[in-house]
Write a protein that binds this DNA or RNA. Structure first.
Lengths: 110, 110
DNA sequence: CAACAATGAGCATTTAAAGAACCATATAGT
DNA sequence: ACTATATGGTTCTTTAAATGCTCATTGTTG
């Protein structure tokens, strides 16, 4: 089942910022909500959800819309993005592939 | 209805990067997938989707998990995030609230 | 200031993602 | 090398998000 969720402050704020960046990008490019939603292959309502920073939208769509109005997620262009991806791939192969916990309590939570 | 979607290169790459950052963050903090998913209130499967850069996960959950392993979306901490949010709010009030198109074609697409 | 376009919002339907419980495989630690 | 455990992957069910209308409201521009 899909549970109803609650989100932390940072998450809400990050979502709010992303939504506002997208809306600002759209307005600056003089695109109507209908136009942008059509280009993105979504409905106006979904676009509004995104611009309002709703947490429930699927991330791929949000990123897609962001790209359409020139909002770069990692401040990188396509090429640099690929580079970082490759470097991360490397880094991951170096890290242990699974995390193992010793039997005795090693909770470093405090 | 929910349509099946396709995503652009940049989107896929951004998602892939984000997933890898989260996985790396998790491993560095020596958290098992089960542990992290429990803390995030999701199942291991959803976490795996996120770490694999699947586009279909809801953005709020992804951001939440990212925060849990110390991946900051905008390179900002909580306070700075709030500041940027406020500034964006301002910027949006200055921008026209709706985009109007003159009757004649003003496609600036080329 | 009037007309019209853009936005906001509600509702029923559809569908894909999340959940839950599995088993198989890979891998870290002894 | 063994072994316990973490991870990968599958199936079925559930449920909430996206759609596709429609109507109301806002706001721009002639």
């Amino acid at each position: 089942m899909k549970r109803a969720r609650s989100y932390s402050r940072v998450t809400k704020q990050a979502l709010s910022i992303l939504g506002k960046l997208i809306k600002a990008g759209r307005l600056e490019r003089k695109l109507t909500a209908t136009e942008l939603s059509e280009r993105a292959g979504i409905t106006r309502k979904t676009l509004r959800n995104i611009e309002n920073g709703e947490a429930g939208t699927e991330i791929g769509v949000v990123f897609e819309v962001a790209a359409l109005v020139g909002v770069r997620l990692f401040d990188f262009d396509d090429r640099t993005l690929a580079m970082h991806n490759a470097r991360l791939e490397e880094k991951l192969t170096l890290l242990p592939k699974s995390v193992r916990h010793s039997k005795q309590e090693v909770d470093d939570d405090f």
